[in-house]
Design a protein around this nucleic acid. Structure first.
Length: 293
DNA sequence: ACTGTACCCTGTAGGC
DNA sequence: TGCCTACAGGGTACAG
């Protein structure tokens, strides 16, 4: 489900409820999601305070008292619901999905002072991992990640270096979390369209010939940053089952230029090409064959 | 070291 | 109505 803007929206919704609160009881209603739950999962979290909730790529990171970090990934259909003892909306904050099925409520965090946070995930592609103190940076899930696209670490020079000599096309390049962390199918399509670059262009052609300016790469990096910022500002995208922190929908799906718009006309200035859907690595790619080169 | 494909799981939409 | 297929904001384990 969620890419960087959706995960960031979820983080902003959960943070005021979770950060600074103590976990009274952790209820895992099955042995696993995508992976088995951590050893002694409940025991290691119960009685501890969550000191901060941050995000890295598409991961939520809950730092807990004692130095452990709970890494949470939402997979495709993961979502959190916040409730207090009066019901889901009573806190005025919740992250919920239309048609969410209680059979898929897999983890419940009961918070000291009342209230609980429930993780629901129909497809169970999400997972939770508990990392011992001091081991977060070297954890396999973290250490291979590329730069945060909205940070100053992510520049045209950095992207060009990572693209150099690669045979993959730009779609695959940007989907690779080792190259840049947090993009997914929607925002890769949207960023490539904004930069007017074809998803099928070879990554190796992104880096200009030696010495020449990195025009295309600059355009692409700028497109990635602006599309993510715009999407975060809109509260992410709502398709099918995603909702954000105050229960309303994200709005960015109304601003898709290409995603899920095959057959429609390209909205680029003076283009009017017909948008196309192609399949790469079993995932849909949407683009305009006329203005994206 | 890279690159591409199959697969994990459930729900839903659309064709017949 | 039902049945079947294709597809879905993700990542990983392989085979070549």
């Amino acid at each position: 489900m969620p890419e960087l803007p959706e995960v960031e929206t979820v983080r902003r919704g959960l943070e005021p409820v979770l950060a600074g609160r103590r976990i009274l009881r952790l209820e895992a209603r099955r042995p696993d999601l995508r992976f088995p739950f951590p050893e002694r999962f409940a025991e290691r979290l119960e009685g501890r305070q969550v000191t901060a909730l941050t995000r890295r790529a598409k991961y939520l990171l809950a730092a807990v008292e004692g130095g452990e970090t709970l890494i949470m990934h939402l997979g495709m259909t993961g979502r959190f619901t916040i409730e207090d003892d009066r019901g889901p909306a009573a806190l005025g904050q919740y992250v919920y999905g239309a048609g969410s099925d209680p059979r898929h409520d897999h983890v419940v965090l009961h918070l000291a002072g009342g209230g609980r946070i429930t993780y629901n995930d129909a497809r169970r592609f999400g997972f939770m991992v508990l990392v011992p103190p001091g081991e977060l940076d070297k954890h396999p899930l973290m250490k291979g990640l590329g730069p945060e696209p909205l940070s100053t670490d992510f520049t045209a020079e950095v992207l060009a270096r990572r693209a150099a000599g690669k045979k993959v096309n730009l779609k695959a390049l940007l989907m690779d979390q080792r190259v840049v962390a947090g993009l997914g199918n929607i925002y890769v399509c949207e960023a490539l369209h904004r930069a007017r670059l074809s998803p099928e262009r070879a990554a190796s052609t992104l880096a200009a010939k030696s010495g020449a300016p990195l025009e295309r790469t600059h355009a692409l990096v700028a497109a990635i940053k602006t599309v993510l910022q715009d999407a975060i500002r809109a509260g992410g995208s709502t398709l099918r089952d995603y909702r954000h922190a105050d229960g309303s929908s994200g709005q960015f799906q109304d601003n898709f230029a290409v995603y899920d718009r095959a057959g429609a006309a390209c909205i680029s200035e003076g283009c009017k090409g017909q948008l196309r859907r192609a399949v790469h690595a079993n995932r849909s790619t949407f683009y305009c064959p006329k203005c994206q080169r």
